[in-house]
Design a protein around this nucleic acid. Structure first.
Lengths: 328, 328
DNA sequence: TCGATTTGTCGGCCTTTCCGACAATACAC
DNA sequence: GTGTATTGTCGGAAAGGCCGACAAATCGA
């Protein structure tokens, strides 16, 4: 299938394997039907020597990432049944939600949160039961049915810098969501964006890209500072050990270790000398195929530690047996 | 109390007893709290000889009254209880609502209607039961509680020229609604509007009036054509017989007959020679005080019939005994 | 490993809401 | 009047939804 797609994508001889761009704008959107989240970016190719502008752009990017708190919970059968409400994790209620007045019996309060379409949802937030726990009751079932949520889907509560509550959802991976009717096919998207980028690169004019992490989680746009730091500080060599972060289902992160087993172009015809996933790697743990076997230099942290660290014999409670390092 | 109000209203010597105006604009509004409906009109005093402009204004007025269908129902105890839904009069469902698909078992459909604040309400419209009848079920109780409706209040469904459903409410006359907190007092309103009208009359400049038929059902703004027709065609004389239309509670109309018993200024000091309610009348039916004893010439239709029609000895089913004509 | 804490599920119970039965009312002739 | 059509009210049943009981799962030492 990969081959099939490649066959349809034309070659753009004037499109270099990497474009250095100014980031003019990032806006978040969500599909009105599915609530699928995506970002829209306006990029303008520039001469790489214009360092001042690049740094200003970097700074702006950092400043637009405000400090917020959030929690994410995967919905249980009880959370989604019509029989009851939503059981709020204690930490979440106490860190994210407005504090309840514990002189009331029982302590309870109306709670409002806005989704990505700016719809306001209202819930009753109450602390009750034996043992005591936080619950969302009235209003919760309207939300569940309104968003068509099922056990396994997740909700995300975010408290922003203005102390406002935001509310997102993340559907479980059921069958691959069929978006073909409402969105351009992956092929057309690729072709379209390449044409736009080629034109923009030739003219130093702005162009727009969309990033939908669920539909295609590959990051083709890399912060310039991250890229530079990686290129200047990481000395890559065959057999080098590294660590890399992965996001878990629950928005947490976890590190895996691996070894570099090769360096080669992913696509020697169209993207010769591109650093995008030009490192072939093997992983210490996990069955083959569970993690990609190609990564990019800005994704990894070199292990600078003493010459040899024994691939950890692993400490207790991990459910899955590790693979051997560097064998792929 | 009438006397009391009069004492507070100053005299505007430059304000004539009638103003001929161009009607620039009519917009409908509703009180966000009570849904009370009122109209806002922009009027510009003109020289009465500018007939062309007056006629254009008349024409515009007629055209803004689009042809629509509606029905109004006074809510029963069952309609407003939490035990059930809304029983839709058959004629109404079949004339106003989108037709159901009778091949379904039972025939049912989602129905949406917009209120005067542009809020969209959604109901389940279903045809079921034995004998069969139309009902609104799901969503109805939200509407009843949201609008705080009670048995005796009415709902109004209107299908407009775009086949859209509009939804209005009309509360029963419980105790006289106390609007003093949110609206200017009647006194201040009167004084303010008279000042505005006086200024506008002097300068031929536009001014704005509000018309709230529930709060004060008196019509002080009369379509010019209606006024002219009445003045030129009705020959008024003492003892003359006439008919007059009244609106019933249910938005129906009904005619009553009466006799002119006097012609005199309602307020000889401030509105000398005004034709507004300068006809004193007696009614064939109804106890004294039930209908006003002063009317205006444009409200009545002269009875052109044979010289003497016996004040009807009344036919059956009216619940209340009539007063004698012309006795005040 | 073990006790404490957290939280998922359930039975109980009350309210809401859907349904047709039936009767009261309105309407047509 | 009298028969028919319409619609208001009710009992019954199912679903929604709030509650604490209890136990399963998780966490921390």
């Amino acid at each position: 299938m990969q081959k099939d797609i490649n066959a349809h994508i034309p070659n753009y001889p004037n499109l270099p394997s990497k474009l250095i761009c100014l980031l003019h704008n990032v806006t978040l959107h969500a599909d009105p039907e599915t609530d699928e989240v995506y970002a829209q970016m306006t990029l303008q190719p520039v001469n790489s020597y214009d360092k001042e502008a690049l740094q200003a752009s970097e700074l702006a990017l950092k400043q637009t990432r405000p400090q917020t708190e959030f929690f994410c919970k995967t919905l249980t059968a009880s959370d989604t049944s019509t029989h009851g409400g939503f059981s709020v994790p204690r930490r979440a209620a106490e860190k994210i939600f407005p504090p309840l007045d514990f002189s009331m019996q029982p302590p309870a309060q109306e709670l409002q949160a806005r989704d990505l379409h700016d719809n306001l949802w209202t819930f009753r937030h109450i602390y009750r039961g034996q043992p005591k726990r936080y619950l969302l009751t009235t209003g919760w079932s309207l939300f569940v049915s309104g968003k068509r949520l099922f056990a396994g889907d997740s909700v995300l509560f975010i408290r922003d810098q203005k102390q406002q509550l935001l509310l997102g959802i993340r559907r479980a991976n059921r069958q691959p969501t069929n978006l073909s009717s409402s969105v351009l096919s992956t092929d057309s998207m690729h072709i379209g964006i390449l044409a736009a980028a080629a034109h923009a690169a030739a003219n130093h004019s702005p162009f727009t890209v969309f990033y939908n992490p669920r539909a295609s989680p590959s990051e083709f746009v890399i912060p310039f500072a991250k890229y530079q730091k990686a290129v200047y500080s990481n000395q890559i060599s065959l057999g080098m050990r590294f660590r890399m972060m992965f996001e878990t289902e629950e928005l947490g992160t976890r590190r895996y270790m691996g070894t570099i087993t090769g360096i080669s172009d992913l696509d020697p015809v169209r993207w010769k000398n591109s650093q995008w996933r030009n490192l072939q790697v093997g992983w210490d743990e996990s069955a083959a195929g569970e993690r990609r076997n190609r990564v990019s230099i800005w994704e990894i942290e070199p292990v600078v530690a003493p010459f040899f660290i024994c691939p950890p014999p692993f400490f207790g409670k991990r459910p899955r047996q590790p693979g051997m390092p560097g064998t792929f």
